[in-house]
Design a protein around this nucleic acid. Structure first.
Lengths: 209, 209
DNA sequence: GTCTATAGCCAGATAGAC
DNA sequence: GTCTATCTGGCTATAGAC
């Protein structure tokens, strides 16, 4: 227990860890191509040469950041999707959990989707990653609910896409949506906060008979 | 009529136009920071110096592409949102119209949202742009429908965000969603095609009493 | 492990001939 | 208007002292 705490303290002053934190900040703000190694070094408060000492190249540092970001959120999503709870409860947990996470880490969703769009081959690496969530159980659950007449007819894939869209897009599209709704940062945040429960209600109303 | 056709032909061979088309292709694929002027020149089949002759700098060429992309879709959205048709019909037109457009121009939504996230000041320029849609009429329409008991209680902003999310996200998040659903390009496209009507049905079910 | 200095390359932009 | 050649700066990456 004490060692955990000590490791934590050590890591805070550990250069390798400081670099990864700085790289996260810069890559998530500027993207792979927009980020500069010098800026990451400055952000970490260390020398540029050390970046290469620890991570060899910009590409490898980037991939470390990318997969760490994904590993931060993916297991949480997978755990909810594969848990043994009723469909409506699962939808509530999933949306609330994701929105809470994204509010705490606002750059992560943007970052993942952005880089995935510019590196199509990254998608393959990601799917094969051990923490990539499997949605088969969730799909079965939806199909069963449709068959049993518990919910309206809808393809499991479409319902899943709808759930993802309603939870993720308000973060990805924030600048655009703020423009449309003419809301400032603070008011937009209030709106997002409301979505922790609103999104699930909306979905459930859409599918329940 | 003849002159229109002649202008079209001339523009096809016009270098200024060829540059803009090539720039669109490269910027939308690689983003502002990832794109290279040389690649745009190659794509246009002309010399790199000509890019600067016509557009002065990379930044200015980029902005020309960006605002042209936005002008391509924004007026269509605005027209639907401000038309005088019933709420449910408007939702049907909007979603079907947007999805049809995005299928024909798959890079445009990604491009706009991506660059908006990396250039926060772009958002302001965009909102002041003459073709930026105003959603006041649409918001009033929703508020009235709520007051008259035609639909469930929902804030106009939240409903608008839901509509945008369900229509736009499947294009922005395509690589991720393909990974989750394990669908290939062709099957995913079929799914998107279904959404031309499915999305509106889903929304209407969610809000109607 | 950590630094300074610099190699080596490539990008955006311009000069100037035609 | 269109080209070739080139400037200038900034970037990733490494060499080498400590």
């Amino acid at each position: 227990m004490l060692t955990v705490w000590l490791n934590y303290l050590v890591n805070m002053e550990n250069n390798e860890h400081k670099i990864l934190e700085a790289a996260k900040t810069v890559f998530q703000k500027k993207g792979m191509t927009g980020a500069r190694m010098q800026e990451i070094a400055d952000e970490a408060g260390i020398n540029k040469a050390l970046l290469h000492y620890y991570y060899r190249s910009k590409q490898m540092l980037f991939e470390a950041v990318f997969f760490q970001a994904f590993s931060l959120i993916a297991p949480k999503l997978g755990a909810v999707l594969n848990s043994e709870i009723a469909l409506f409860d699962k939808i509530k947990h999933f949306t609330k959990g994701y929105i809470s996470f994204a509010m705490a880490h606002p750059y992560v969703p943007k970052f993942i989707i952005q880089e995935l769009n510019q590196n199509p081959d990254f998608a393959e690496k990601l799917v094969q990653h051990n923490s990539f969530p499997n949605i088969d159980i969730f799909k079965n659950q939806i199909e069963t609910a449709v068959k049993n007449g518990k919910i309206r007819t809808i393809s499991p894939e479409q319902l899943f896409i709808n759930i993802m869209s309603l939870t993720v897009f308000p973060f990805i599209g924030a600048p655009l949506l703020k423009g449309f709704t003419k809301l400032n940062e603070a008011d937009y945040k209030v709106l997002i906060e409301e979505r922790k429960t609103m999104v699930a209600d909306f979905i459930i109303n859409a599918i329940k008979k």
